[in-house]
């Protein structure tokens, strides 16, 4: 990308050292009844954050919190970065999981790997998912135990630790998406003529698809 830009995420970083955290844990099914795109932050990790059963109409300030859960503990209540194990966001395609993370204030997730659909959904909502090796992640874990804070620089694709930097890979197209905040639909509709041409050719060669 030859544009002049900078994209830095810096803030409190919480670790949940569990593998295969599925999107049902990130936002339970009950909250999928909403027809809105916002307002899911209070229900993030609902089953782990609260001891009682919730629903979309229940005031979360009246609910019994699980005081042991990291996102209920200061200063992690204000986390911006989440550090997790492998295959984070596996399972259901619900974009509500990303909306819940975003609404809570999470801007970046560092994991050993991600579920594919979840990974895509992140970029549609300005959340940066970073995939790094287990070794590198262990360094990050050690760092945040001491410092609680992380600085992620998307420009240089680096996570800054006290005395070192961890580099991460990310596809250029997705990096652009986060930095420029582009609207995918606008971009794609710029190719409307090619899509129409493709479509009409398709219906000539495979008319049963019409």
């Amino acid at each position: 990308m030859n544009k002049n830009y900078q994209h830095v995420i810096e803030g409190i970083s919480a670790e949940i050292a569990i593998d295969n955290i599925d999107t049902d844990q990130i936002i339970p099914t009950e909250y999928l009844k909403s027809i809105k795109k916002y307002g899911f932050g209070d229900f993030l990790f609902d089953g782990w954050r609260y001891k009682d059963e919730g629903n979309i109409q229940k005031d979360t300030s009246q609910r019994e919190q699980n005081e042991d859960f990291i996102l209920n503990i200061d200063p992690y209540k204000k986390s911006k970065i989440l550090v997790v194990g492998k295959n984070f966001g596996c399972g259901s395609s619900r974009e509500h999981a990303v909306w819940a993370l975003r609404d809570f204030g999470i801007e970046c997730i560092i994991a050993e790997s991600f579920g594919d659909i979840f990974y895509n959904n992140c970029f549609k909502n300005g959340i940066l998912p970073i995939q790094i090796s287990q070794d590198k992640k262990n360094h990050v874990s050690e760092h945040i135990k001491e410092n609680k804070n992380l600085r992620v620089d998307l420009t240089n694709q680096s996570i800054q630790l006290e005395s070192s930097e961890i580099q991460f890979e990310i596809e250029e197209s997705l990096k652009e998406r986060i930095i420029l905040g582009q609207d995918d639909i606008d971009i794609t509709l710029g190719y409307a003529n090619q899509i129409k041409q493709f479509e009409s050719n398709r219906f000539v060669s495979k008319p049963w698809l019409k």
Binding site: S93, V98, I117, N120, N121, K124, D184, I185
Partner: peptide, 10 residues
């Protein structure tokens, strides 16, 4: 394949 809601809109 399964997709998210932004992709449904797309």
């Amino acid at each position: 394949m399964g997709i998210g809601t932004s992709e449904v809109e797309h």
